[in-house]
Design a protein around this nucleic acid. Structure first.
Length: 271
DNA sequence: ACTGGCTCCTGAGGGC
DNA sequence: TGCCCTCAGGAGCCAG
């Protein structure tokens, strides 16, 4: 399930195949994604050159001279570079075809992903306008987190999964980062000290960077642009390890639900 | 202003 | 072998 590391892995994988390339066609087989793919999009894209392949949070942004494609992988989406003749699988919802005979193919069984288009500054698009800072960029600090959490009673895990607080942290990395920071997931966000928030900001950076290095985490669906899985799963500390021994203290990893989400933690290491 | 709950969707896995 | 149920989750949306 794509979180920031999986989207960044995808971005890095597809970028060299797309930069400077001309879009020949967009072929939409299933427009019913999270939001419908605009019906006039194929006509708009034909002949445009991809000038940039960027990421904002979990959104991929393909920049052209006329506008920007906004793409989200939802929770089961993946993008692969394939030959246009590659056999179609179920749930291959659209192809972006390039003049040199290559194809960016979107696959998404649950259709929570999206493909949208904006001709204005993408930062001003409603989906992107209220996003919080990037966790791997300088504005993201423990002080920022503590400031943002002031007076708030919700659980710290839900707090760091809120894209208006910080982007890119989904259910897997929220549990992992809290374990590394030694903070219990249900602790009220507004009642955590500055020094512990500094440790949490560090843990978030560390866990995201480590996962990007491993090519992301593959639990069920995620594959990179070449169709290969990511390997971060092998070093997950708590996620989907209920009942197994904590790698740090040996006691059993707990699991439960918090804000309708599966949550994993070590009761001895996290307070 | 916050917070928690619901919703979209399909496939996997468990129980019987 | 097959059916039914539950769960997985990103994030917008809405009610309280």
């Amino acid at each position: 399930m794509p979180e920031l590391p999986e989207v960044e892995t995808t971005r890095r994988g597809i970028e060299p195949h797309l930069l400077g390339k001309t879009i020949d066609a967009l072929v939409v087989r299933e427009p019913r994604l999270r939001w419908p793919v605009p019906p006039d999009l194929p006509a708009k894209l034909r002949g445009l050159i991809v000038r940039s392949v960027r990421r904002r949070g979990k959104y991929l942004l393909l920049g052209t001279d006329a506008g920007t494609l906004i793409l989200h992988l939802g929770m089961s989406g993946s993008l692969r570079i394939v030959s246009p003749e590659a056999p179609l699988r179920k749930h291959d919802h659209f192809d972006l075809l390039f003049g040199y005979g290559s194809c960016l193919r979107f696959h998404d069984p649950r259709r929570f992903g999206c493909l949208l288009w904006t001709e204005s500054d993408p930062k001003a698009h409603p989906l992107l306008a209220s996003l919080g800072p990037e966790p791997l960029e300088p504005g993201f600090t423990g002080r920022y987190l503590q400031e943002k959490a002031r007076g708030r009673s919700l659980a710290v895990k839900s707090f760091i999964m809120d894209s208006q607080v910080v982007v890119g942290i989904g259910n897997i990395y929220a549990s992992e980062a809290l374990f590394r920071a030694g903070i219990a997931p249900n602790r009220a966000a507004g009642r955590i000290s500055l020094s512990r928030y500094e440790k949490l900001a560090d843990s978030i950076r560390t866990v995201l960077e480590a996962s990007i290095e491993q090519g992301g985490t593959t639990l069920r669906d995620f594959v990179n642009e070449a169709g290969h899985p990511g390997y971060f799963r092998q070093i997950l500390a708590v996620y989907e390890r209920a009942g197994e021994a904590c790698r740090r203290c040996g006691s059993g990893i707990r699991s439960g639900r918090l804000g309708q989400r599966a949550t994993y933690w070590c009761a001895r290491c996290q307070k």
